[in-house]
Amino acid sequence: MVIQYKCPNCGSDMSFDSESGHLSCPNCGRQDEIETFPETNIIRKFDPDEAKEYHCENCGAVILTEAQTTATHCSFCGAPVLLADRLTGDLAPAKVIPFTISKDEAVAAFRKWTNNGRLTPRGFTSGDRIKKMTGMYVPFWLYDIEGKADVEALATRVHSYTSGDTIYTETNFYDVRREIDLSYLKVPADASEKMDDELMDKLEPYNYGELKDFKMPYLAGYLAEKYDYGDEELFSRIETKIVPYIDSYIGSTISGYSTLSYTNKQIQTNKKNVYYTLFPVWMVYYDFDNKEHTFAMNGQTGKVVGKPPISAFKVAAWFTGIAASVFAVMKVVAFAVGGVLW
């Protein structure tokens, strides 16, 4: 089933506007609340041989999609279309964070970011070689984690005092135990095979204040994908992600000791709730030196991640600059204090 949103005024295809958070008509400028958009203007077209291909309601062209695509544009007439059967049932997202950064803002934010690249080549910093910017809803699983930790440790407190001409060093040993109920909320893991995990982790954090219940119109005008990995498959990734957090929390509950060595550490984590969620990401494809570089931008906060090209000259220049100035400063201080330069 293909879904398109038709403007109640002029019948054009509407798309989601990140600035107002409404459905907006590119033709007449009409804006509609997502919650109250009239049912009659939602065109649902069912193809009998839908397993193989989808057809655009406007022009009848075949919509070219990959198996994961849930929202895209008609490659012929450009109308925003949603592939509804890939967004319903088991595949229905529970939550969505809508785009708050428009394409123009994304371009500006990306240029600003390239400008700040201290180690990138000069041609790269101008930021004017953007080949393509794609706004994309990336599937994530959000986990509410519940857990228990039970740790035992051997701790010492050391203090020393002098009596007569003898220094006494007293070491007190303690058995320490902590039992802790743990809770972490909405820890994300990206469920798309295509997206680099490390890149997606660096895009965090998102502001959950704008987390909305999923409605299809949010996707109109953007690309969207469905998950490749189920929530069970990704839970081990979540565990490795939160174990350092748990460790640091445990450490914070034990204080006042000189040394601490754990003798027993048991941590159990279970998922309490899982939310299938779509996060907004701008993918930036940038041409430089005949090579395409891919960057990702958090569509809500504007944070940019991705490996930029590195200029060996700039690296060398920064290194020599810093080393030379540190050396000069140390020399000046040494001269001021000791009165000798060499």
Partner: peptide, 26 residues
Amino acid sequence: YFDGDHTRVTGTRDQFRNKTVSRRKV
């Protein structure tokens, strides 16, 4: 992602075990 409302320490123990003293001349 820390949930301060539901994370809490339910049991603690800080039990003194023994002590050692070492001496050295000033």
